[in-house]
Design a protein around this nucleic acid. Structure first.
Lengths: 201, 201
DNA sequence: ACCTGAACACCGTTCAAGT
DNA sequence: ACCTGAACACCGTTCAAGT
């Protein structure tokens, strides 16, 4: 019967850090501050979180995974804009946050950017891309049937939305990602407004 | 005949910091390191740059303003949407295409993503980011004066536009970039429509 | 295995003191 | 006005020592 939340003090540390962030989103989660709030020593904190970066990544990841819906486009009770935004949020969440986001981007970079155009592995990348485009396109097709979409080339709209998600995903891997998380939803909302009719709020 | 570059030691400090960045883009520009490189005391450095943030911003701004093309926002003969799109296109063009784009992204990746979050070089990255945000924000401020902007948080709008540019820039480094170039202008156009009033075509 | 707390090598900022 | 360097209050990480 091992607790899925981990050991007691490990949880205490995570809860302390999350509480500090909740009380003040700009709070600095220093070793000593978190350890004191959790009522443990700095050495104990280091035992579970070997580096400060690991601690921060774990905290942020815990905050993100509090919401995990099904296919949001199916939820007919919500407005088109809300549903499309939820779908994009789903794509975005795939990259993860913190160390996970960096790891994902490093893998993509090494495979498709670093080498002088491998030409052969390009096929798998392009296949993945087509898959993503078609997925977004299916969402837009649904919204088109509801007459919620603005006029225009749907392929262009799909590429546009994917570029926004790509940009936001990338920014999750850059320094200062925590401070930028607050802009994600507003950016997605702005992206959504560009492809939806104004009256379909 | 006062030198526009400022006092001698002030220049020495800026040159020292810029040199350090040139030698190692991930170098940490700490007070003591820069002061030592410049051959001045930490107190002297603080006299000209009251805070570390001011120093970093000044250094980055000095590096950026080495290239200053024409500002498309000044061309009053064109519609707001056209001007803003031209400005974003300018940002986008900085990354280059093909091998140049891949090279630029590799440099960014190695410096800020690959290493287990260098935390120390984060400051220079964040200074660059603030510069980019403020640049976009200045364009939006101009459009706001012309009453061409939709209501809403301008900082959110700036971040949104930058995310679009980041996404498109990144996609220039991925396989199949040539085929995607055709979607760039339509994506920028869609992004622009999200922040401009509908009547201000 | 878990936990402690001191110690180390750094930070950025302040400030009395000099010129 | 410019410049010095010590001092202060932090930081993240390491590690011998305990249980």
């Amino acid at each position: 019967m091992t607790e899925p939340t981990g050991s007691d003090t490990r949880s205490k540390i995570l809860i302390a850090a999350a509480t500090m962030l909740a009380e003040d989103p700009t709070a600095r989660l220093s070793v000593r501050a978190v350890a004191a709030k959790a009522g443990v020593s700095t050495g104990s904190l280091r035992h579970f979180f070997p580096t400060q970066q690991v601690l921060l990544d774990t905290v942020i990841e815990g905050l993100q995974t509090l919401d995990i819906p099904d296919d949001p486009m199916a939820d007919a009770t919500k407005a088109p804009a809300e549903r499309l935004q939820a779908c994009l949020q789903l794509l975005l969440s795939a990259v993860g946050t913190g160390a996970s986001a960096r790891q994902n981007w490093t893998a993509l970079h090494d495979a498709y950017v670093a080498s002088p155009t491998p030409e052969e592995s390009a096929q798998t990348f392009l296949a993945m891309e087509r898959l993503a485009v078609s997925r977004v396109d299916r969402w837009l097709a649904q919204l088109h049937e509801e007459d919620a979409l603005v006029d225009g080339d749907r392929e262009q709209q799909s590429h546009f939305l994917l570029s926004v998600v790509n940009g936001l995903s990338l920014e999750r891997a850059f320094p200062g990602a925590r401070a930028r998380l607050g802009f994600e939803s507003s950016s997605l909302r702005l992206a959504v407004t560009a492809v939806l009719r104004a009256d379909a709020s």
